[in-house]
């Protein structure tokens, strides 16, 4: 047998065994078709989210304060336990930037900025921010937006190049997606089950850094976040307080927080401004939600001392730094 035959056999065997072994790792038991689809969807979500989180981490880096990071993860896990998404896994990290913001990437990746921690007055406010992000992930706001963008693009493409019947007859059946197939597709192009991870992650970055999610999704995340906050036993108005502090920090007055006004495009300077509805609008919506929750009658914990103590490490390390 010649060397070329051996090379052929070896490369073919490698291709097949690599696919089969990867699949067999996961197919110890039989999954139903619904479960298979769910597994593929979750994989897709995690891959996109990991890619997005990786980009943010590479851009800003992380705060080198392990105790604070552990605290954020413990707090996040506690908040998540008090939500309806307790079966999901969330991962938290602190981005080393003074920008006040937090990012939720599909798959459970939540990145809080150092600026957010520096501007939160207590644990309840940090929990409110985390609850807002958990709501985004739990409600799959980003993922559904990316799927919609993908679908819109496909529709646009289809409309733009309307295929004549002579081409339509050449279309072949839609294949059934299999786990090995998606693995292979990933091998070949970085795609998972047809959706290109890199393309989706790039679109996702555009959403969280520039365009923002649909305003209604942000109000929805605020509403669900406040519910989680109340369930977790925190001070219900923590998000309102935090948002109002941001408004004041950017030159507004306390009264401005409650006007319910929108913001001019020219006034939108920070990432938060560009990607979220105005603070007064969010506060106005949140106040309605809180009223419905009966927040007036709930005291809730603020955790000011614990927050200061737990985040001291980070402040010590970043105190002397010029951003």
């Amino acid at each position: 047998m010649s060397r070329s035959l051996l090379a052929f056999a070896a490369s073919f065997t490698l291709l097949v065994t690599s696919c089969v072994s990867k699949d067999s790792e996961r197919t110890d038991r039989k999954y139903s078709e619904v479960e298979e689809k769910q597994i593929i969807k979750v994989k897709k979500e995690v891959e996109i989210g990991r890619n997005m989180a990786g980009r943010l981490l590479r851009y800003w880096g992380t705060v080198d304060a392990p105790k604070v990071t552990r605290y954020i993860n413990q707090l996040g896990a506690y908040v998540a336990q008090n939500s309806e998404y307790r079966d999901r896994k969330f991962m938290f990290e602190i981005l080393d930037t003074p920008v006040i913001n937090a990012f939720a990437a599909p798959g459970g990746y939540i990145l809080i900025t150092r600026g957010t921690l520096e501007n939160a007055a207590n644990e309840a406010e940090l929990a409110a921010v985390i609850a807002h992000e958990i709501a985004h992930i739990g409600k799959e706001h980003m993922l559904s937006t990316l799927v919609k963008i993908d679908q819109d693009e496909r529709n646009k493409e289809n409309t733009k190049s309307k295929l004549p019947k002579s081409v339509e007859v050449r279309k072949r059946p839609d294949p059934k997606v299999s786990a090995i197939g998606s693995q292979l597709a990933k091998y070949i192009s970085g795609s998972v089950a047809g959706l290109n991870v890199l393309k989706a992650a790039t679109a996702g970055m555009g959403i969280i850094l520039e365009k923002g999610l649909d305003a209604q999704l942000e109000f929805d995340a605020d509403r669900v976040g406040n519910e989680i906050l109340v369930n977790a036993g925190y001070y219900p108005y923590a998000l309102v307080d935090f948002l109002c502090r941001i408004e004041i920090k950017r030159g507004g007055k306390k009264e401005d927080c409650f006007t319910g006004k929108t913001m001019d495009a020219k006034q939108k300077k920070s990432i938060l401004d560009k990607t979220h509805p105005s603070v007064p609008m969010r506060i106005a919506a949140a106040m309605k939600d809180l009223e419905a929750l009966g927040a007036k009658d709930i005291t809730g914990a603020q955790g000011k001392k614990r927050f200061k103590k737990k985040t001291k490490d980070m402040f010590m390390k970043t105190l002397s730094r010029k951003d």
């Binding site: 072949r172 839609d174 294949p175 997606v177 299999s178 197939g181 998606s182 292979l184 597709a185 070949i188 192009s189 795609s191 089950a193 047809g194």
Partner: peptide, 9 residues
Amino acid sequence: VWVQPNSQI
């Protein structure tokens, strides 16, 4: 042939 969305071998 084994066809998957966007790819086939």
